[in-house]
């Protein structure tokens, strides 16, 4: 099996990289793919929390590259899908504990066994970033509709190009439908024009995400949530399906409230 390797990166912190990584990984696993997610944010690990696997960590990424354990000892199986695995980051070390070559080596081993390898990149563009992108074939850049996040995304895209990765795909996170409608938030057209990359997904700002993160259940498992639907669509686009983008300007109207009231679940999201 020759798996595909993605890195999820953003430059700026706080835009939702671990959330995106967890949900894309879980989304692909829900489609029956064998997926492994790797947290490279050594010292500030988060992905295990988002996936609700914090209490199962025995060995971590640094243990693997230093040879303290076997590779499959550090792989933690997800609680909700059998096909999803996590290699957590070490919390007591720092970014220099891993070298880009070691990441490439790790990828070569994992490629045999998994269809998708998704690497969660730390914020910033230093050693941790270099480690994370070294092993990736493609990149997914996460941004939010804020000027500062977009500026950093632009810088990161430039660095990815310099590292000779193909042009990355973009996920715009935390879109607020109401604000776009009023013209108070940058919309996807402005963002794509500036960054000149392909759009992979639009994820609305959604209370479900916070609840899901705190519970350790990725929102993609929640069939009623808009953001969950957005991540399911992202997963299907990664698989090569042509799915329309969510229409974020609707879905909060009278009809959707009515649908919710009547108890219709899932599958009724409007397209853009």
């Amino acid at each position: 099996m020759a798996g595909k390797t993605f890195v999820v990166t953003s430059g700026k912190g706080g835009v939702g990289k671990p959330t995106a990584t967890a949900n894309i990984g879980a989304g692909l696993a829900l489609r029956g793919k064998r997926v492994i997610v790797i947290d490279t944010d050594i010292g500030l690990r988060n992905l295990d929390v988002v996936l609700g696997l914090e209490n199962r960590i025995v060995y971590d990424l640094v243990d693997v590259v230093e040879g303290n354990c076997k590779l499959n000892q550090a792989m933690i199986r997800d609680k909700h899908t059998n096909e999803l695995y996590l290699i957590p980051a070490a919390q007591t070390r720092d970014k220099s504990a891993v070298k880009p070559d070691q990441m490439k080596n790790l990828r070569d081993h994992l490629k045999e066994e998994f269809e998708y390898i998704i690497i969660d990149c730390p914020a910033g563009i230093e050693q941790g970033f270099q480690n994370a992108i070294a092993a990736a074939d493609r990149a997914i850049v996460v941004t939010t509709p804020e000027v500062s996040a977009i500026r950093d995304a632009d810088r990161v895209i430039g660095l990815l190009e310099a590292a000779e990765l193909p042009i990355p795909d973009l996920v715009i996170n935390r879109l607020r439908p109401g604000m776009i409608k009023q013209g108070d938030m940058m919309d996807k057209k402005d963002i794509l024009e500036l960054l000149s990359v392909q759009l992979l997904g639009l994820v609305p700002d959604d209370e479900h995400i916070i609840v899901a993160t705190n519970k350790g259940v990725p929102v993609v498992h929640d069939s009623r949530s808009m953001s969950g639907e957005a991540f399911r669509r992202i997963a299907s686009r990664i698989e090569g399906e042509d799915r329309p983008f969510l229409n974020l300007e609707n879905g909060h109207g009278v009809f959707s409230k009515l649908r919710k009231f009547v108890g219709l679940k899932g599958g009724d999201f409007t397209d853009d």
């Binding site: 500026r151 950093d152 632009d154 810088r155 895209i157 430039g158 660095l159 190009e161 500036l194 000149s196």
Partner: peptide
């Protein structure tokens, strides 16, 4: 022959023609 993204710095003794955008940063 490409866009200049944030962080790019082009210094040149002479004229410069950019085939693309020059982004903030």
């Amino acid at each position: 022959k490409n866009s200049c993204r944030s962080g790019t710095s082009i210094l040149h003794d002479g004229d410069v023609v950019v085939l693309g955008d020059v982004n903030p940063g």
